[in-house]
Amino acid sequence: MDLLQVIVSGLLLGGVYALLAAGLNLIFGVMRVINLAHGELLMLGAYATFFFYDTTGLNPLLAIPLVAAAMFAGGMVLQRLTIERVVGQPLLSSLLLTFGLSTLLTGVALNLWTTNFRSVVYEPLTGSLGIGGLSISRSRLVAFAIALVVSGATYVFLRRSTWGKAIRATAQHAEVAQVCGIDVGRVRLVSFGLGSAMAATAGSLVAIVFTFNPEIGRVFIGKAFAIIVLGGLGSFVGAFLGALTLGVTETLAAYYTSTQLSEAVAYAVMVGVLLVRPSGFFGQAES
């Protein structure tokens, strides 16, 4: 039963990871830019949710659509002003740029909000549900469900809608997408906005489930990269499975070894997986 408990905790944890990783993957796919500032977008989402709750006292889940919309717009502004300039440039340019953004956003947040840890504790979302001897955290269950719905909706959008398909087409071959009449500049803009909104939503969930401060981005970006590598670069489904795998591996490792070692063990397992499957679960060789 304990084992099951640990696995369930891990799966619930994985949902939030998945949302973050999926956004990162989307941005990479379309722009070939590794967004090192992705964790900071999550951090901003967490703060936005916190301040929403702090000011209104309303159910923090209500903040999610607002925060996501704001970050969608904010992400597009950021893309136009900065990221767009490094598209098609050597990878180092985009790494330097996004690393700079990451440092800048963290620094500004530290100045505004200090390293103090914050958390949104909304009474109805505390405690747990007892299901057949398992204790399932309410906040994590809700966060998992939201992460699932948002990821699922994004997936459907990418699979079914014309714009979603245009995003995928651009990711697969930007030049050909362009000669199909797709304004790939706009696709990049929208994709970055979408990725930012997903990161911000993950941030909202982090605010509800965890405690956070301006440096939280770094904790999560590391996980997101591990997930993408594990799931296969550019694969949406792969990222989702990778996220759940990481969540469960972390909690199992913490259970059988220690919390301190769990991350190391989890990463060791992932390296093991990659030795067997170098391109991850769903990785395709880049053409």
Binding site: S137, A254, Q260
Partner: peptide, 13 residues
């Protein structure tokens, strides 16, 4: 049980 400063989950412990 020791946990790292950035731990966000101690459910296993």
């Amino acid at each position: 049980e020791q946990y790292p400063a950035e731990a966000t989950d101690v459910s296993s412990a």
